[in-house]
Design a binder for these strands. Structure first.
Lengths: 244, 244
DNA sequence: AACAAAAGTTGACCCAGATCAAGGTACATC
DNA sequence: GATGTACCTTGATCTGGGTCAACTTTTGTT
């Protein structure tokens, strides 16, 4: 549902309080934001924003996974961004976006009307600064992704993708070992993310499974059995690769 | 040569005065920057910054073309950014970069020592704001590029590349028709940019030539003969594609 | 429980673009 | 004007991953 709901969660108790656009805010600044925020929810598959549409709100992603994607004339599409909790949608000074934003899983957003938000950005250096950091982080991951799309083999792409999920979940969950991770999307969406077809994604997952590097408990849930072999399969050098 | 030269060009007469990081500065703010700037020159092929190296300066690109590139363990490389005059190198709050920066042609930089520059960013909202705009522009073109790398055919990649050169030169030169444009790099570097091999780049250029869409006067200089056919070959829809 | 729809797997085949190889061309240096 | 070197072109061949197609498994609905 894209019906705005008055905020039910207090900012101070928000799960993304310390990573989102509000991360650097003090209590007073937070109060400003709290006054203009509202929540919206979307079901998996729902389009959150269409390319070219006027942005009436900007938002922090609170829960779930969303994706940014671009489409060619004949319908080929490529994901150009993956949004996880604490990532931001919309940019100061931009009233349109040049890609579609779709809910990959069920999603909850913390939305701010664009105009009031831009005033706050203007008057609150801590928000402006955090927005800059978020933009630079996105730029870094866009560049890692370009290396992946331009030069990696199908196997390397899949291995890199899994490694990224492992890293992100560590950051999110604070558990040293990760067994039982879950894919946040279908094979088709993963193909879209990696510049492959769904058949190739399926084959490469199964190849890594056969080699004992990963194992699946069901279609979505898996476990990394050999993290070193997984890393070798990414093609990245020891220190390099995705840093988030 | 990477020997810093005391500024010889006055900011007020600088060719990138109105597009670079200083674009929004008033005279007083400009004076602040002028005090800490110096010029450096690099020859085509020279590495400006190595990945991982400590950034001692940040800089605006004044003249020439530079590229950002990433490398896999086995030596495959992919360009992840192309810097043209007025583009910026280095980011506030980051003391390292995760890619190499190389002079593609002879290059002149307007450099600022990192520390003093960061103080100025902190105290000059007009600089901070402009830096944000530049970062967002880079993010947009990174995303167009991801679509290109992930989903476009060799022909579409080459056509898109040429179309970008046409657009950029229009913006730079303010001449309605562009005959006699020039490639800022070798076939090898173009391949690197587009996620292709140099042989494929050569073949696709010659295919477009045979079809009468472009023509070459020498290896570097060319002319677009049929801009509509060129656009058709990019795979982008009418309004979409690279916007810079 | 039966059925339908969505998601995933597997095999056969094919082709765009990589790879390998051999020349050709333009410019710099002596 | 000869020699070297970097750059580019062109042809022959190979192959990773796309395409097409059939089938299986899971999930949701009546």
């Amino acid at each position: 549902m894209n019906v705005p709901l008055r905020a039910s969660v207090k900012c101070s108790e928000c799960p993304i309080r310390h990573r989102a656009v509000c991360a650097r805010c003090d209590e007073d600044e937070l109060a400003l934001l709290e006054k203009v925020k509202c929540y919206r929810s979307y079901q998996a598959g729902e389009v959150i924003l269409w390319r070219g549409e006027d942005l009436e709100f900007v938002a922090s992603l609170v829960k779930g996974v969303a994706s940014l994607s671009k489409t060619l004339e004949d319908g080929r599409t490529q994901m150009v961004g993956l949004l996880l909790p604490s990532d931001f949608i919309g940019r100061p000074g931009r009233e349109r976006i040049d890609f579609d934003v779709t809910a990959t899983t069920d999603v909850t957003l913390c939305c701010f009307e664009r105009r009031p938000f831009e005033r706050i950005v203007h008057e609150t250096p801590n928000v402006a600064k955090r927005l800059m950091e978020l933009a630079l982080d996105e730029l870094d991951s866009a560049r890692d992704w370009m290396l992946l799309l331009g030069r990696k083999t199908a196997r390397e792409k899949i291995a890199t993708f899994i490694e990224m999920l492992v890293r992100r979940s560590t950051v999110t969950d604070f558990n040293g070992v990760q067994h039982d991770l879950s894919l946040p999307m279908t094979r088709d969406q993963i193909a879209n993310y990696l510049g492959l077809t769904l058949e190739t994604v399926s084959r490469q997952f199964n190849a890594l499974k056969k080699e004992g590097i990963i194992s699946f408990s069901d279609r979505r849930r898996f476990e990394v059995r050999d993290i070193a072999a997984l890393h070798d399969a990414t093609g990245d050098d020891a220190d390099g690769g995705l840093i988030d």
